[in-house]
């Protein structure tokens, strides 16, 4: 969910840049490490970035009738981890702002924090947790993608609530109003994106499970087992 250009007043949009900055620096540092270590990293990450961009511009079928777009952040976090994903999201958000007038430049910091940092962290943690306790892989992917979306939407609501606190009840009351309004569209969207990402995961496993093994998303044994189960 993008906060549009100009929506956040000073000093809130500056604040979100400051908050996101350390994680971007960390991500850039990691990017340099990866590209020094493995020459093939940059082209493949570029494919990943383009994939997030295209995925997030697909129109999802929506139950409420309105069109919704997936964020793709859950899938990105599962595939590339929470350190590199913010860098990919930064590029994607920049392009969305300049290609499609989606989101904005002053709100880039806030959007980056909700979609590139908070959402992916939730998604990645859920995925790793699910793998550790040995839950069903597809269920885990569904939960990771859906909760990454819910996390993003809650953070966005909080960002709006902080910038526009209620006269009575302050930030909490404001959060309830913004959260309530956006829940109508964002919760169904999260469930649909969860289903779609789980299915994407399933198709990738049945066709090119080696990619997932290479990215360290699945162990070799787990991938083989899932592949056999699918056949």
């Amino acid at each position: 969910m993008h906060i549009m250009e100009g929506f956040l007043p000073s000093p809130w949009w500056e604040l979100w840049f400051v908050v996101s900055l350390p994680l971007i620096i960390l991500g850039l540092h990691r990017l340099k490490e990866i590209s020094d270590m493995r020459r093939d990293a940059i082209p493949l990450l570029a494919v990943a970035g383009a994939f997030i961009f295209v995925l997030s511009s697909l129109k999802l079928p929506s139950v409420t009738g309105s069109c919704s777009h997936p964020t793709g952040t859950g899938l990105a976090a599962i595939l590339f981890g929470p350190v590199v994903t913010p860098v990919l999201c930064l590029i994607v958000l920049l392009y969305q702002a300049l290609f499609l007038a989606h989101g904005g430049i002053t709100t880039l910091g806030a959007n980056l924090f909700s979609m590139g940092i908070a959402g992916p962290m939730v998604g990645y943690s859920v995925y790793r947790l699910g793998c550790r306790v040995g839950a069903n892989t597809y269920m885990t992917v569904f939960l990771a993608a859906a909760l990454a979306d819910v996390g993003t939407y809650l953070v966005t609501s909080a960002q709006l609530a902080l910038a526009f606190p209620a006269a009575e009840g302050g930030v909490i009351a404001s959060l309830a109003v913004f959260g309530g309004i956006f829940a109508l569209t964002q919760v169904p969207l999260a469930v649909i994106e969860g289903i779609v990402v789980a299915l994407i995961f399933k198709y990738i496993i049945s066709l090119r499970a080696d990619i997932l093994v290479k990215l360290d998303v699945l162990t070799k044994g787990r991938a083989d087992a899932l592949r056999e189960a699918a056949e």
């Binding site: 020459r39 093939d40 082209p43 493949l44 570029a46 494919v47 383009a50 994939f51 295209v54 995925l55 697909l58 999802l60 079928p61 649909i192 289903i195 779609v196 990402v197 299915l199 994407i200 995961f201 399933k202 198709y203 990738i204 066709l207 090119r208 990619i211």
Partner: peptide, 23 residues
């Protein structure tokens, strides 16, 4: 739902192949 998932995974795999070719 089915179509969009097939589209997503198809794109990912094709994209990946392209990335390898590009390299």
């Amino acid at each position: 739902i089915r179509s969009i998932s097939l589209l997503g995974s198809g794109l990912f795999i094709r994209g990946w192949n392209r990335g390898e070719e590009l390299l």
